[in-house]
Design a protein around this nucleic acid. Structure first.
Lengths: 233, 233
DNA sequence: CAGAAAATATGTTTTTCAACACAAATCTAC
DNA sequence: GTAGATTTGTGTTGAAAAACATATTTTCTG
């Protein structure tokens, strides 16, 4: 848990970038009700069934949010990047979490007290409307995802996931290497397939020179081709 | 289009039941910016790509919301019942619709002007927070649905859909017959399977005395069994 | 009411992908 | 550094479900 010390003010500023409509006095109020935690790689942030305690902000690192499926196979429903929110659905729905969240890198996580957040929301409709918009956008992603995960074939699903990871986390300075290093298993859980099939299909893409593989490092060599595979399904 | 005339005040009251936090003056304002339309069975309410013009309320009838999939197969992402909202996602996300909506019965549909709605939301945080909560709940459904549609087998998916229809639209006075009469094709599009397989699996359920079939009328004979099939996957 | 169109039903074939098995490589904790 | 655990890689098999084909019934439309 105790790695590098956390620079409170710097982290707080990062949180504020998510809420441009916050007024000065609201920022001050939020400061007094926000805590930061260092999380090592692979730590659980929350588990299915738990009650949300506040608004969670990923300040640094990477987090996967996943649901346990019927056959014990997990489905990743969200990949959080800094600076970004996660775990907010259950909070706003006033339900317990229906998914679990786990870091996939050492991360810094902020928690804004629920009551503080709601005090601010009640005094700042603009902010509430921004969050409403964000939630609606998220619902759109989820609906689209349902369709592609159910209708695309394996190659299409994996291609889409790779593009999604590129769009979400970006590329290393070489302009090709995905800036995220996932286990094959996570890639499979993101793409609704078995680990074996993720490995196999990655190998196929590599043989076809669409990507290149070096352990968990994935280089996208032929993005147009990958996009075509994703679209075709 | 022109069937029974619409009783404006009665319909308006129906709309108001959805927003218990509306103040009297806001109700009056909304009244002046709401229009009602009669829609015949199978009419399109909006199509993928269109811009939302306001908040849509289903006052009477039934509506399916679906996305066109990669292979031309539709996926139903929502079934609206009266009195209820649909098509609000795109509105709040400030995007064009990413799905289409079609009536499956003669229906009455209300549209509240977008600008009127936002005027009210800006003056009524409580209402906005209620909508936020609804949207978060909806996102939870969507995520759960993604998992079950991808991980359950055909029988599990169909069983779940039948239970979903029962929970959403209820049963006829006999306590067994589903109060909705869908095409086999719609049932298939709801359950992520081909029409053939929906028909076949329905027949199987019927042979096993879990349900009984009479055209589009479906009686649930053995709900516990259906629930077991749905849970097992 | 007749004809056409749509929906339902059912059998057969083919494709896709999960399940399983096992070997090799890599990571991790002591 | 080494033993054990985890992850990766690859082949084989079988089950599930899509695709296809076609007949029958129902519904719609003029």
């Amino acid at each position: 848990m105790n790695q590098n010390p956390i620079d409170f003010n710097k982290c707080m500023s990062a949180v504020f970038t998510l809420f441009p409509k916050l007024r000065e006095e609201e920022k001050e109020f939020m400061k007094q009700h926000t805590t930061f935690t260092n999380c090592r790689k692979n730590e659980m942030v929350y588990k299915e069934g738990e009650r949300p305690t506040g608004l969670i902000v990923l300040v640094k690192g990477k987090v996967k949010v996943f649901k346990e499926g019927v056959g014990g196979r997990d489905q990743i429903v969200r990949m959080a990047k800094p600076v970004g929110l996660f775990g907010f659905r259950a909070l706003f729905a006033e339900e317990n979490h229906i998914a679990s969240a786990q870091t996939i890198e050492n991360s810094i996580i902020a928690t804004v007290d629920k009551s503080c957040l709601y005090d601010i929301l009640r005094s700042n409709v603009g902010l509430t409307l921004d969050i409403l918009k964000g939630l609606a956008t998220e619902l759109g992603f989820s609906n689209s995802r349902t369709v592609t995960l159910t209708q695309k074939h394996i190659r299409g699903r994996l291609a889409e996931s790779l593009i999604f990871l590129k769009d979400t986390y970006g590329l290393e300075p070489d302009g090709k290497t995905l800036k995220i290093y996932l286990l094959r298993e996570d890639l499979a859980n993101l793409s609704n397939m078995t680990t074996s099939n993720a490995i196999r299909t990655l190998s196929n893409f590599s043989e076809e020179n669409i990507i290149s593989l070096d352990g968990r490092k994935i280089k996208i060599l032929d993005l147009p081709r990958l996009e075509k595979i994703s679209e075709r399904g």
